[in-house]
Simulated scan of single mutants.
Amino acid sequence: MTMTNAEPEPQEHGEEELNKAIEELKDVLHEENPGGGERADSFSGNPDLVMSIPVEVQIVLGSAEMPVSQLMALKKGSTVSLNRRVGEPVEIVVNGRRIARGEITLVDDDPSRFGVKLTEIAGKASVE
Rank of each mutant, 00 (worst) to 15 (best):
T2D: 00
M3R: 13
T4I: 12
T4R: 05
T4M: 08
N5Q: 08
P8S: 07
E9W: 13
E9I: 12
E12V: 09
G14S: 03
G14A: 03
E15P: 06
E15I: 13
E15D: 15
E16R: 15
E17A: 12
L18Y: 06
L18D: 02
N19D: 14
K20M: 03
A21Y: 04
E24H: 08
L25V: 00
L25S: 00
K26F: 11
K26V: 11
D27R: 12
V28G: 02
V28A: 13
L29I: 07
H30T: 08
H30L: 03
E31Y: 07
E32T: 10
E32A: 09
G35D: 14
G36N: 01
G36H: 00
G36P: 01
G37Y: 10
G37T: 05
G37A: 14
E38V: 12
E38C: 10
A40E: 11
D41W: 09
S42T: 11
G45C: 06
N46W: 14
N46H: 15
N46E: 12
P47Y: 09
P47G: 03
P47V: 03
L49D: 07
L49A: 08
V50E: 00
M51W: 11
M51R: 13
M51C: 04
S52A: 15
I53S: 01
P54K: 09
E56A: 05
E56P: 05
E56N: 12
E56S: 13
E56L: 10
V57R: 05
Q58N: 12
I59S: 09
V60C: 04
V60R: 12
G62C: 07
G62T: 06
A64L: 00
E65I: 03
M66C: 04
P67A: 07
P67S: 07
P67M: 00
V68C: 03
V68N: 02
S69T: 15
Q70D: 12
L71D: 07
L71R: 06
L71Y: 14
M72F: 00
M72A: 06
A73Y: 10
L74W: 00
L74R: 01
L74K: 04
K75V: 06
K75W: 02
K76V: 10
G77C: 04
T79H: 00
T79L: 08
S81T: 11
L82Y: 15
N83M: 08
N83F: 14
R84P: 01
R85T: 11
R85V: 00
R85H: 09
V86R: 01
V86S: 01
E88C: 07
E88D: 15
E88A: 11
E88H: 11
P89N: 05
V90C: 02
E91N: 13
E91Q: 15
I92T: 12
I92A: 13
I92L: 14
V93C: 05
N95R: 00
N95G: 11
R98T: 07
A100G: 08
A100P: 07
G102T: 15
E103S: 13
I104K: 12
I104F: 11
I104H: 06
T105P: 05
V107T: 09
D109N: 05
D109H: 10
D109L: 05
D110V: 04
P111D: 07
P111W: 08
P111A: 06
S112D: 02
R113S: 15
F114M: 04
G115E: 01
G115S: 03
V116F: 07
K117G: 01
E120Q: 05
I121V: 13
A122L: 01
K124T: 02
K124L: 08
A125L: 07
S126D: 13
E128R: 15
E128D: 14
E128G: 14
